[in-house]
Simulated assay, not measured.
Amino acid sequence: MQQKSLYGGVLLKAKEILDFISKCETSPTLKEISNHVSITKPTVLKILTTLEYCDFIRCVGNPKQYYLGLTFLTYAQKAKTSFNLDRIAMPFINNLRDKTTEAVNLGILENNSIALLDRAQSTNTIRLDLQLGGHMSMYSSAMGKAILACFPREKIEDYLDRTALIKLTEKTITNRDDILNELVKTKKRGYSLDIGENQDGICCIGFTIKKNSDVLGAYSISAPIYRVNDSKLNLWIKEGLDTQRKIEAAV
């Protein structure tokens, strides 16, 4: 295949600089950047100045150290929300539903809550149907707890500071320390549990969908508690984790 002719060599140079900054464990100086990219030091400085003007980077200190700018957070959030996760994930989620016979819900993080993006309905006669586009609290739902467990401690604390922890059922965990302990357990075992915490009589197991270290969304197996036993729970966890591996390999 003939290689495409690219326009705008300075963009490629800027990308090389940004890639280097993003991979550094500590924020690099001009000298460190110019020593590690295939660009002359004067050109590196000109590009850095332009990137700083555009808020793509920021520099602090003496000597100056360069950081990625907050503009990339806006771009990242837009990329996540426009990413067609359901198109990729739903074939795997439908297969998980077939193996468990229970409902499997797909959700994304939206305004500090979980928005239901899509679902595979249970094949059982008695089933729970959630409203697409509806929202669930992160601290009480399986998908929400799975995503929260991926956050750094400071971000979890910030979420708890700004969220009213309301008891949705008798089993909803609203004590801050208990929530933090539950998230530690969730992170360690690789899945979350909601045993009647978000809705009375409903058991959910939650799993995240990640690309590298970015959380793209989550899904949960949901069933009435009376249909759940240890044997089924262990099977659903096994199949849920297997589905997670397959989705993450496809995104």
Rank of each mutant, 00 (worst) to 15 (best):
M1W: 03
Q2A: 06
Q2D: 05
Q2W: 04
K4I: 01
L6F: 02
Y7I: 13
V10T: 06
L11M: 11
K15D: 07
I17Y: 02
L18C: 05
L18E: 02
D19R: 05
F20S: 14
F20C: 11
K23D: 11
T29D: 04
S34I: 02
S34T: 00
K41S: 08
P42A: 14
T43D: 10
K46S: 14
K46T: 08
I47L: 07
L48Y: 02
T49W: 05
E52H: 15
Y53P: 10
N62K: 15
P63G: 15
L68Q: 14
L68A: 07
G69D: 02
T74N: 13
K78C: 10
A79T: 04
N84F: 01
D86N: 09
N94C: 04
R97D: 10
K99H: 05
T100G: 15
A103D: 00
N112T: 05
I114T: 03
L117A: 09
R119Q: 15
A120K: 02
Q121W: 00
Q121H: 03
I126C: 10
L130H: 13
G133I: 00
G133A: 10
G134K: 08
H135V: 02
H135M: 10
S137V: 01
S140C: 03
K145G: 01
K145A: 03
A146R: 10
P152C: 13
E154N: 13
E157R: 14
Y159A: 09
D161M: 07
L165C: 09
I173K: 09
T174I: 14
D177P: 06
I179K: 01
K187V: 05
G190V: 00
D194T: 03
D194E: 03
T208C: 13
T208K: 06
K210S: 13
G217N: 14
I225A: 14
N229I: 00
N229W: 05
D230R: 04
D230G: 01
L233N: 07
L235N: 15
W236V: 04
I237N: 04
K238L: 08
E239M: 15
G240P: 08
K246R: 12
K246P: 03
A249C: 09
